[in-house]
Simulated scan of single mutants.
Amino acid sequence: MTLAQPLAIPPSAETFFANHAQLRPMPEVAARLIKSFDDPNVSLRALADLIEKDPTLSARVLRLANSARFNPSHNVSTLMDAANALGLTMLRNLSMAAAISGRFPEVQGLDRRHVWRHAAITATYARILGKLVRLEADEVFVAGMMLRTGQLLMALSAPEQVAEVERLAGEPGSRYSLEQHRFGCTHAHVTASLAAHWHFPNEMVRAFTDASEPLERRPFSRMAAVLHLAEVLADAAVKGLDPVEALQQAVPELVAHMHLDLDDLRDRLLAAGDPGQDVDALLH
């Protein structure tokens, strides 16, 4: 039997929590949304009623429901209308995306719109990959949305160094090694600390912890692998590169280990369109 390694969050990742007080606390509604992942009997009405308790979150969800990407046949004006238009899975996913993005202030050295557009793409691609490897797609979507939040925490403490890493990260997936060399940890490690602080599921915290080098950790976490792959895909997408070719060049061993059907993956990515097109509705 393979014994699980303890969570390998480097001590250097914890140092970035000196500025965690600048984050807005995770609202109670979002915390209850996280718990709903473990409830197979949760209803659309229950989720809508829960989200409606937070006026700011409700307003963001309504803007997303009326955005071009989802393009309902008519404008929705109530949260229950949005729930019916989106369905349970998308309602919860968009609500969590809005809740997470709303926790972070503008930080020096990073373009907020660019970061959250990248996060939305990562989340969608993680969901696609999750379905291919039979993971819980909703949880993987939220994890993808969360993945770079650690970088925002890092930028609160070291804005110039984080900005330099972004300038140097020309190759898809290179952010991890650049951060490890400069800081002794990666944004995924800092995100793991944040996720633990916000009481996210243990599986998700471990996935963040292992996402920098998923092949090096035991037991192997498919969610960590999906997060790493999704970030490479998102890096390629925002740079206008072929995402599948980027995967093959950046992480061929991980692609082989996951036994991905790359033709199927390419078709699914194309069908997803531009998942980052509604970032303005997410942020305002």
Rank of each mutant, 00 (worst) to 15 (best):
L194N: 00
R92D: 05
S58W: 02
W116M: 09
F200A: 08
T186M: 12
D263A: 12
A158H: 13
T122W: 01
F200Q: 13
T149K: 07
R117E: 14
R167M: 12
V244W: 00
L47E: 06
R206A: 09
G87K: 10
V279A: 11
R45L: 14
L233W: 08
M1R: 11
L262F: 01
A224R: 06
N19P: 04
L23V: 06
S77F: 01
G173P: 00
V133G: 03
D111L: 01
A256F: 02
G240K: 09
D81N: 13
D242G: 09
D264C: 05
D39N: 14
H189C: 09
T124V: 04
P214M: 06
D267M: 10
E253L: 12
V244A: 06
M26P: 00
V232F: 04
F183A: 05
L229V: 13
A83F: 01
M80P: 03
A225R: 12
Q180M: 11
A196S: 15
F37Q: 10
A188T: 07
T122M: 10
R32N: 07
L260T: 02
L147M: 09
S221K: 04
M204K: 03
M146Y: 05
P252A: 14
V107P: 03
N93L: 09
D138L: 12
L3H: 09
L110R: 07
S157E: 15
Q248T: 09
R24T: 11
A48D: 14
M26Y: 01
G130Y: 05
A68E: 15
M223N: 10
G273K: 14
A281D: 11
N84L: 15
S101W: 02
A230I: 12
Q108E: 15
F16E: 05
A195K: 06
V205H: 05
A120K: 10
L64A: 08
A163R: 14
F70Y: 11
L94F: 03
A207H: 04
S101G: 09
R167A: 06
A8N: 12
M204A: 15
N19V: 11
A192N: 11
R60C: 01
A85M: 04
A234P: 08
H259W: 03
E245R: 12
A236H: 02
R182F: 02
Q5D: 13
I51T: 14
R92F: 00
L3K: 15
V279Y: 03
A21L: 06
G144M: 03
A250I: 02
A237W: 02
L241M: 15
M145W: 10
H181K: 14
A4G: 14
D242W: 02
L88W: 00
T89A: 13
F220Q: 13
E139D: 11
L147Y: 03
A97V: 07
N41R: 07
V244D: 10
A272S: 14
L178K: 04
F141I: 09
Y125E: 13
L260P: 03
L178C: 05
R92L: 05
A85F: 00
K239G: 01
M90P: 01
